[in-house]
Simulated assay, not measured.
Amino acid sequence: MASKKHLKDRSRKDYPFLLEYRTRWNDNDMYDHMNNSVYNFLFDSIINSYLMEYCGLHPPTSDQHPLMAHAHCDYFSAISYPKIAELCLRVNKLGKSSVIYEVALFEKDVGQVKCVGEFVHVFVDRITQRPNANGMNPQLRQGLERLVVDMASKL
């Protein structure tokens, strides 16, 4: 992942996919901002929304499904109810059976990124719970390839 300073410079144009989320009253914690556990919920939601809509993932029946291998988040400033969050998604690395996603959270109509997270999925066979010898199925890979960014030009 890029340095924290570089991550603070992220903008929406750095991400090929965006999804809005209207914050809820119960997203706030006693410090009057969105609780850090909600960020992970939102990151998981944008990733799985993309996988279902563009990669053919059907969670109850797909032969392959993702397992979380790693999660990380760098927070820069808070967001709170009743703001609208804009979640942005890209793929920083696409392996044979794994993918490294980067998710950024922006507040609608505010330029500065609120936080940037990294999620790593390993796609496994539903029955064996192990990666397939051939890697991801073609539909899944093709969908994820649309989100891959050229890291060399982004650093």
Rank of each mutant, 00 (worst) to 15 (best):
F76L: 11
L57E: 14
M30G: 12
L51T: 12
D63A: 13
H33C: 07
Y15C: 09
G56P: 02
N28A: 02
V149M: 03
Y81H: 07
E118L: 09
L89K: 10
S37Y: 04
I47Y: 09
K8F: 03
E118Y: 01
S11G: 15
N35Q: 08
Y21K: 06
R130H: 06
K93E: 12
V110A: 09
P82R: 05
I84R: 13
F41M: 15
L19I: 00
L7G: 07
V120I: 07
I84T: 15
A78D: 13
D29K: 09
P131K: 06
L94C: 09
R24Y: 00
G56Q: 07
P60S: 12
P66H: 05
Y54D: 08
Y31E: 09
L19M: 14
C55R: 11
C115V: 12
S153R: 08
M34Y: 12
K4C: 07
S37N: 13
L105D: 07
G95Q: 03
E53T: 11
I47V: 15
Y54H: 13
H121S: 10
T61Y: 08
P138H: 00
G56L: 04
A69G: 14
M52V: 15
E145R: 08
A85N: 03
F43D: 08
D9Q: 15
I127G: 06
R12S: 10
V110Y: 08
C73K: 06
V91A: 03
T61D: 12
V124H: 12
G95P: 00
A133M: 08
V122R: 15
L94G: 06
T23Y: 00
L19Q: 13
N40Q: 11
K83G: 07
